[in-house]
Amino acid sequence: MAKTLSITQSSNDEKTPVIYKIIVVFSILLTIGGTLTGVMTYMNVGFNDAFYTNWLTSFIAAVTIMIPVGVVMMALLTKLINKLMPMASKLKKDLLIGGCMAIIMESVMSFATAFNNIGFNDFNQFTQGWLQGFLAALPIGLTMMLIMTMTLKPKIEQFMKS
């Protein structure tokens, strides 16, 4: 009986393989980053023969910049919000952090997308492309943030800890 109990405990204590965690993070990154850079690319260059190439290169550029910026900003914002609002509920903190992260990350994605599609040759055109892409994707990004914060984040956190 003791032998059976230890086997059951060890199977329940098994960790989720890291590859599954990577797949989950990569799927979220593809869904959110792909959708938003797609909208931003459309706002920059429209839908033409080169759209998919422009979108893919914009997505790769945005992700390359977004990952390190996102990790640093998430840590800093979480620390700041916890310090400024120690008595606020976890949900309120998560919503505030999520909203700030959505704005920061979309700014970064829009910058990378405008740079990729327009370049810096004409700074006014670049700025206009950045702003159009950012404003067009903002409602989508904020909606995704609400869905993530309200429903998916607790499940993802639990999965990542397993």
Rank of each mutant, 00 (worst) to 15 (best):
N54C: 09
N54P: 05
L56R: 05
L56K: 06
T57R: 06
F59I: 00
I60L: 12
A61N: 06
A61W: 05
A62K: 00
A62G: 14
T64Q: 05
I65R: 03
I65V: 11
I65W: 06
I65M: 12
M66N: 11
P68T: 04
V69E: 00
V69Q: 01
G70D: 01
V71P: 03
V71H: 07
V72H: 08
V72W: 13
M73S: 13
M74F: 12
L76W: 07
L76E: 03
L77Y: 07
L77V: 06
L77D: 03
L77E: 09
T78E: 12
T78Q: 10
K79F: 09
K79W: 13
L80H: 04
I81L: 05
K83N: 11
L84D: 05
L84N: 11
L84C: 11
M85T: 08
P86F: 13
S89Y: 12
K90Y: 09
K90T: 12
K92A: 14
K92L: 14
K92R: 10
K93P: 02
L95H: 03
L96K: 04
G98N: 05
G99F: 15
C100G: 12
I103S: 07
I103N: 05
I104K: 13
I104R: 04
I104W: 11
M105C: 08
M105E: 14
E106H: 13
S107Q: 07
S107C: 12
V108Q: 04
V108R: 02
V108F: 10
M109C: 14
M109N: 04
S110T: 10
A112P: 02
A112M: 08
A112W: 04
T113S: 06
T113A: 04
T113C: 07
F115C: 02
N116D: 08
N116T: 15
N117V: 04
N117R: 02
N117C: 14
I118M: 01
G119H: 01
G119M: 10
G119D: 09
G119A: 02
F120H: 01
N121Y: 07
F123C: 02
F123G: 00
Q125N: 08
T127S: 11
G129W: 01
W130G: 00
W130L: 04
L131D: 02
L131P: 01
G133L: 01
F134K: 01
F134M: 09
L135Y: 11
L135S: 03
L135T: 10
L135I: 06
A136I: 08
A136D: 07
A137D: 05
A137K: 06
P139S: 08
P139R: 05
I140T: 12
G141N: 09
G141A: 10
T143V: 09
T143Q: 06
M144L: 15
M144Q: 07
M145T: 14
M145P: 01
L146F: 14
I147P: 01
M148T: 15
T149G: 03
M150N: 09
T151P: 00
L152G: 03
L152K: 00
P154D: 14
K155T: 15
I156L: 08
E157I: 15
E157T: 15
Q158M: 07
Q158S: 10
M160A: 10
M160F: 15
M160W: 06
K161H: 13
S162V: 08
S162H: 14
